[in-house]
Amino acid sequence: MATSILFMHILNGLAYGMLLFMIAAGLSIIFGLMNIVNLAHGAFYLGGVYIAYSLVQQNLGFWLAMIASIVLVAGLGVLMERFLLERVYGKELEQVLLTFGLSFIFADLVKWIWGTSPLALPVPSSLDVSLDMGGTMFPAYRLFVILVGCLLAVLLWYMENKTRIGAIIRAGVDDRQMLSALGINIKVVFTSIFAVGAALAGLSGVLGGPIMGMYVGIDSEILVSSLVIVVVGGLGTWKGAFIGAILVGLVDTLGRVWFPSLTMAMVFVIMIIVLLIKPNGLFGRGAHA
């Protein structure tokens, strides 16, 4: 294979990895902090892309539609955490049933409102060009997605490691009870983190729409990959989610090119190898109390 084509596949893999990162980052930090596996996290992706689609249909323009959609999805996240998840903290079986059930409800809701035929979110016109990269043409929009993903990673890293909010979140992952005894209202922390996680997944949906297409079922595909990333990267860290997402994004994309029938198997093989070497994931801190 010509190196230029390989290079293109790598860029595609990175773009996909960035979309996965935005989902897995929220999933991982929610898992690490609140001890909850949100199996309905894919619904925020769906919500993001479908709401943006409708707003674009209303001639709102891609960027405004993106912002409005993210805000709405974050609001949905707040409602879900406040009224539903809060009742099942510490009850694992109930959490799985509730969030799994919610993912079906949201998927059906999307079918009901938007129908079952695949739709497409158009690439924003300002980025609807291809760039000449050493002989091959590459869509500028995908480069933009990679850029956004990297900027977001830097921003989240900064927030996590250089701010008091970040310190409070890490302290919460370490020892929630102690944190509350220091005067921190852990409920507010939980709700805010949940909203941020939902917003990130919504952003992933909007940005992913023009690349991945829109259909019900993509939420569960993306959720499975994101769960693998959380396991590979380690719970409760943005850094782990970032590296894990790039890894899974590249393996998935290159796998589809070279061994189309083995792609998913390869992703899981990677997960098993990482777990054998580092049971807590690449950047995991170990089980917490």
């Binding site: 008091r164 310190a167 890490r170 302290a171 992952v173 370490d174 020892d175 102690m178 944190l179 801190r285």
Partner: peptide
């Protein structure tokens, strides 16, 4: 908190 510095 093990993941925090002394100052944090």
């Amino acid at each position: 908190f093990p993941s925090l510095t002394i100052r944090e």
